[in-house]
């Protein structure tokens, strides 16, 4: 568990899906599963799995179906089956994009997430390299402190942070979010990158040192190119975390045009007692799509960063 990088730890699962799995002898994944008869497998494996998948995916299906329903269909369970759309409409999406501030919220979320991610990655690369490779005095202690920082939840920091944000004059600006998001991104990214740096052979660095390279040159020219998968993992994960952030954005932002998607949807699309479920669901769907698309391209990196952060 420890000698593998986060990436490598998940690789067996991927490799197993390749054509090699036919051979029973050399294949670890199949194990003794072939001893179980098919009907028994259906009851003990496939059926529960189907139930799990149904429950996990149903809210998304419901989001999508509601987005494309017209109001008369939405509230009429007698004439229309609630599980299907008879007359799909783009009315809800149109309303969302042209009658609310939704596009601005999307843009705000994008700017804040991207800037916070790059800022955190820069800090995390330097810190991770220093802790893992420079091994300065007290580096172990600092590594432990970084791990502990990862465990400090935003819900106990937002009150003092809000007073700080206010006194620095950052209240209701993107900078408030860009500067506070790294507090939970840097510990995570550093911890993840430390694991990657550890997996790069130290001999490479020694060779470069003998050839007269400085530490900064080593970091930029040797370590970083080799740690690209780790950088991608940390980067997309940090982006997702900032995209999902809620409590800081809710507390530090007050004007409509500065809000992020999660906050905007909750505070602005809900008007009084009448809930416009169609446009609410459209807002939820459109806010989820960017991360879902990013996720679909980088599934393996997500899995490795998630399992890596826990296991390292």
């Amino acid at each position: 568990m420890t000698d593998a990088t986060p990436q490598r730890a998940t690789e067996p699962g991927v490799a197993r899906d390749g054509p090699a799995r036919r051979g029973r002898g050399g294949d670890e994944g199949e194990g003794m599963d072939y001893l179980v008869s098919l009907p028994r497998r259906v009851v003990t494996v496939y059926l529960p799995l189907l139930v799990f998948l149904f429950v996990l995916l149903f809210p998304f299906y419901w989001m999508v179906i509601t987005t494309f329903k017209s109001n008369e269909e939405l509230y009429d369970f007698k004439d229309f089956s609630p599980f299907w759309v008879v007359h799909p409409t783009l009315h809800n999406l149109h309303k969302l994009f042209f009658e609310t501030h939704y596009p601005i919220w999307l843009w705000n979320t994008m700017v804040v997430s991207v800037v916070a991610t790059f800022l955190s990655l820069f800090c995390a690369v330097c810190a991770g390299y220093a802790i893992e490779r420079l091994r300065f005095k007290g580096s172990r202690l600092v590594g432990m402190a970084i791990f502990l920082a990862y465990l400090v939840p935003p819900s106990i920091l937002f009150i003092p942070l809000s007073t700080m944000v206010f006194s620095y004059g950052l209240f209701d600006s993107k900078f408030a979010l860009i500067l506070t998001y790294p507090t939970f991104l840097i510990p995570f990214c550093t911890w993840l990158l430390m694991g990657y740096f550890r997996s790069i052979p130290y001999e490479l660095e020694e060779c470069a040192l003998i050839d007269g390279a400085t530490r900064l040159q080593i970091l930029v020219k040797i370590i970083l190119p080799l740690a690209v998968p780790g950088l991608i993992s940390a980067g997309i994960f940090a982006f997702t975390l900032s995209w999902n952030e809620f409590i800081y954005a809710l507390t530090f932002i007050s004007s409509t045009t500065n809000k992020t998607v999660p906050v905007g949807v909750v505070t602005e699309l809900v008007e009084g007692d009448v809930y416009h479920w169609g446009s609410l669901m459209a807002g939820a769907l459109m806010g989820s799509l960017p991360v879902a698309v990013l996720y679909s391209f980088f599934v393996e990196y997500y899995v490795s960063s998630m399992t890596g952060a826990v296991k390292e």
């Binding site: 799990f52 809620f246 991360v291 599934v299």
Partner: peptide
């Protein structure tokens, strides 16, 4: 691999937005 990707989806999507789906 596909199954694993699908299973992780609820965790990737912003909590607030999936919570709105649950609200509905």
């Amino acid at each position: 691999a596909l199954l694993r990707a699908i299973v992780l989806l609820p965790w990737i999507v912003p909590t607030v937005l999936s919570a709105i789906a649950f609200w509905w």
